[in-house]
Amino acid sequence: MRFSLLFLILLSAALSPKAQDLVLRIHPRVQGQELELGKETEGFQVETLRFYLGKISLWKGNKMVFQEDNYHLIDAEKPASLEISLNVPTNRAFDHLQFELGVDSLTNVSGAMGGDLDPTLGMYWAWNSGYINFKLEGRSPASPARDHAFEFHLGGYLPPFATVQTVRLPCKTSPRIHLRVDLDQFVTGLDLSKQARVMSPGAEAVELSQKAAQIFSCEE
């Protein structure tokens, strides 16, 4: 039994088309420059940036040419997390990249998960079950909070306050995709004097999650 199973696995590996590692490289940026944590630019500084990027797919027109089902925790403090290898079959042309910003509702109700979804990683709410999809913390003189801090922990999966966003971007065929995350677009788009802290599910979290979904683009 064990032998035949092994044989099947080897057979399917031999028959599947050759695959290459396509690299999806994430570039958190401020004013077009690579993000430096703790450095003040544009009237604010970022101390924490973490978000879930999941269900990555590549599209050629209306046809999906590649799909992955898992979630990646992107953490600006961990350089290794900024590079995702995708096992894409060779000669797959695509013109769009699609992914989910955040964790879907099914995953949110599936109990304890491991890997990038392990609840020890600071992206899980203990007192209101569910993942934090997008976490941005920093300081800006515009924030009236203590130490001029701003804190955005965006999440929530229950309707009508579901926050997971599907992002679809034009993206040229290439063995290396550069995904830009323009944080200044998010921060300067807010009025920090009125809104410096969103840390629970609700209408504000939904609104800010939609804004966060707008700051991604593929480098041409």
């Binding site: 949110n108 109700v109 599936s110 109990g111 304890a112 609840p119 899980y124 203990a126 007192w127 209101n128 079950s129 569910g130």
Partner: peptide
């Protein structure tokens, strides 16, 4: 507020 037995213990622990 807790949606699954697996993650229930997180609430009192934290």
């Amino acid at each position: 507020a807790v949606n699954h037995l697996d993650v229930q213990a997180l609430a009192p622990i934290t």
